[in-house]
Design a protein around this nucleic acid. Structure first.
Length: 672
RNA sequence: GGCGAUAUAGCUCAGUUGGUUAGAGCACGGGAUUCAUAACCCCGGGGUCGGUGGUUCAAAUCCACCUAUCGCCA
């Protein structure tokens, strides 16, 4: 087995929200693959970073009242903590908002520009005149021009599926301010992807991609490649384009460069040769694990950018499917939108690592997390089958032989059979057929249990003179267990490490040339893993439902007029609000909208003319408690003097609602 | 709307270039066992392979259409 050099990445999580179980499919898949490579003795670096740029980050920082830098620092820390507790070990975890990324983004941009791959021209876009920023399609809502459905985004209608441009929307408003967007021109920069059509035609069919991905891309390539808008106008959180003040790199331009930047950062820390991995003639292998939703960026833009900037292209891109829970899309209301943190608060992360491994393949199919299947699978496979082998053998070894394994291997052929399986299992791991690898390993576990069952050590224990055989059978079981743990180590590293402690052995390499432990003392057995408790799963679902209420959507179409400018408490204190009792209410001769109210505000009564005739009959008001502004300057109206104002809400007409206090308040009390 | 993927036992999934009675794990039923975290071992029931039509000596597999689910449309 020759030594390979690999650089592996997972897609960068966006710094706009927490890690959830859907994200984890990818990071666990990558981590398992990387651990496997390392266990095999290859040189393998696994780098990742937080994806930190773009309008959503900027807006969220504003809504939280902190700087974007503070926001991404906070979220980045949370992300890394979640990953770490799931056993995902990066060789480096960086940020796209880093000097390395800025320098590399700039370098790549300049090389593309100098190579004639960047164009610029003015385009017309929707613009929010209040927030003073351009609006992408997702920030405009209105009625679908085709079917009239309300509350649809600027690019397509969720109700009828029509696609259109934001200018087609009826009654369009900015999601940010509620204002009607205007259109405005601005110069944008474009990456001319079509220059790379031939190169991509070859690259996408040269074995770098899964066949289904390759087919998908063929479709896009046949339609002809369009230029890619890589710039955004200020205000934007990102990197300013070097030769274009006020213009920023679109987040998707610098995000994949973040892979390089994170690795550059690692190189600087560890003295590695960056060019050995990224130069055009690099011999290192470069792999990107991604979700199938971002294939376009990774299989077209990214290789083209690298090519155009004179860097090497990826060895392969591995796309995976999405996670469904109980057969359905993850849903906040069903409690199946589960954050990594919520899971960690209740269940052992290795359960999920094993479960995902058992279901993952090299394809792009979605995988389903079925809670019943999850606990059955984990309990049956890991606890019932694998750990059980150690459990059932170690008791004899300790009770009868002081922890000493026998001095011979009684079944060398069986042991060798387990060692020989390493090749098949390794092939499955290598090709990301983790489900098949797990099945293979569990078949070995079954074999081990069958062996013990056949030998019946518990009968030997009762027969005098069979001590030696008893020790041999149990030692054999322990040795088989050891190999199983070596094979499972990429998936369940914590359990594997615990098992190594129990076995009193060094960290296990991939068992290509393993020999049985002979005359070896092991440590007392302690439960290595406990069963999944069903109530914990329910607790996760419940907690996920609660999260929903805690995290109300932050960006929502504004239905109401914008909040007025902030005032100080002193401003508020100037307003003297009083509880008032309506003593008398009557129509005003000749007035269309007004009612005349006589109200008791404690020590005095007032005459108030209120514009609420359209919504209230006078007799319905008499005796009612309400709120009035008592120190409003009296106002002379056509029908008389109004000595205050009754508080009411609503758009008008029949929809006016007079405010009233809770029971117990009495006329004259001041509101404060 | 266009395009793609998927649809196999109660559940989660295998089924290589079309080729005997369609497989596994879990669940279920029966038996055996008691060393082991009620684990393990043996046996068994259960599927008109989403639907309809076609090609073929032969279709889960190839083709067409339909239905459902998921995704993509830069």
């Amino acid at each position: 087995m020759s030594k390979r050099t690999l650089l592996v990445t997972s897609a960068l999580p966006y710094a706009n929200g927490p890690i959830h179980l859907g994200h984890l499919v990818e990071y666990l898949q990558t981590d398992i693959w990387v651990r496997f490579q390392k266990q095999r003795g290859h040189v393998c670096y696994y780098v990742c970073a937080d994806d930190t740029h773009g309008t959503p980050i900027m807006l969220r920082a504003i809504s939280e009242g902190i700087s974007p830098e503070a926001l991404i620092a906070k979220v980045g820390k949370e992300h890394l903590a979640d990953f770490t507790e799931f056993g995902i070990v990066f060789d480096n975890y960086h940020s796209t908002h880093s000097p390395e990324n800025q320098a590399l983004s700039r370098l790549i941009y300049e090389r593309l520009r100098d190579g004639g791959h960047i164009n610029s021209r003015s385009i017309t876009q929707a613009y929010d005149p209040v927030k003073e920023m351009f609006l992408s399609d997702r920030f405009i809502k209105g009625e679908c021009p085709k079917c009239g459905a309300a509350d649809q985004y600027g690019d397509s209608c969720e109700a009828c599926g029509a696609t259109y441009s934001p200018t087609d929307l009826k009654n369009a408003v900015s999601v940010l301010s509620g204002e009607k967007p205007i259109t405005k021109d601005s110069v944008h920069y474009f990456f001319n992807l079509a220059n790379f059509s031939d190169m991509l035609q070859d690259w996408t069919t040269a074995g770098h991609l899964q066949p289904e991905v390759s087919n998908k891309l063929k479709e896009w390539l046949e339609q002809g490649l369009k230029e890619w808008d890589i710039s955004r106008d200020a205000p934007y959180f990102g990197f300013e384009i070097p030769d274009a003040p006020g213009k920023y790199f679109y987040v998707w331009l610098d995000a994949p460069i973040g892979y390089m930047a994170s690795f550059k950062n690692l190189c600087d820390k560890q003295g590695l040769d960056f060019d050995a991995f990224w130069a055009k003639d690099s011999n290192a292998e470069l792999y990107h694990f991604i979700g199938k939703d971002i294939i376009y960026f990774h299989a077209l833009f990214w290789p083209a950018m690298l090519k155009g900037a004179n860097f090497r292209t990826p060895s392969a891109i591995f796309a995976h499917g999405f996670l469904t829970v109980n057969g359905e899309k993850m849903s906040k209301s069903r409690g199946t939108f589960i954050k990594a943190r919520t899971y960690l608060e209740h269940l052992n992360p290795e359960y999920l690592r094993y479960y995902f491994a058992a279901k993952l393949s090299a394809g792009v199919d979605d995988i389903d997390l079925n809670f019943d299947d999850f606990s059955q699978r984990v309990n049956a496979d890991l606890v019932g089958k694998v750990v059980n082998i150690a459990s059932r053998c170690s008791s004899f070894i300790h009770k009868r032989f002081e922890g000493q394994l026998s001095d011979v291997c009684s079944e060398p052929e069986l042991f060798q059979q387990f060692v020989d399986a390493n090749q098949t299992i390794a092939e499955f791991y290598e090709s990301r057929e983790f489900g098949k690898a797990m099945r293979e390993i569990m078949a070995l576990a079954d074999k081990a249990n069958q062996y013990i069952d056949e030998k019946k050590p518990w009968l030997m224990a009762k027969v005098e003179g069979q001590e030696r055989e008893l020790q041999q059978v149990c030692s054999m079981g322990i040795n088989l267990f050891r190999l199983l743990m070596a094979y499972l180590k990429p998936v369940i590293p914590v359990l594997a490490t615990e098992a190594e402690k129990f076995l009193a052995i060094e960290s296990q390499p991939w068992p290509v040339t393993a020999t049985p432990l002979i005359k070896h003392a092991i440590n007392p057995f302690e439960a290595l893993m406990t069963r999944v408790e069903a109530d914990k799963i329910q607790a996760i679902v419940d907690a996920s439902k609660e999260n929903l209420q805690a995290t109300a959507p932050t960006v929502k179409a504004k239905q109401f007029e914008p909040i007025a400018p902030t005032i100080e408490f002193d401003d508020f204190a100037k307003i003297d609000l009083r509880i008032a009792k309506i003593i008398k209410a009557e129509h005003v001769e000749g007035a269309e909208k007004l009612l005349q109210l006589t109200v008791d505000i404690g020590d005095e009564t007032r005459n108030i003319l209120a514009g609420i005739k359209s919504a209230y009959a006078p007799e319905a008001l008499e005796g009612k408690l309400t709120l009035v502004i008592a120190n409003l300057a009296p106002r002379k109206m056509r029908f008389g003097l109004s000595e205050g104002m009754v508080l009411a809400a609503g758009p008008g007409g029949k929809d006016i609602w007079v405010l009233s206090p809770d029971e117990g308040a009495t006329a004259g009390m001041r509101v404060k």
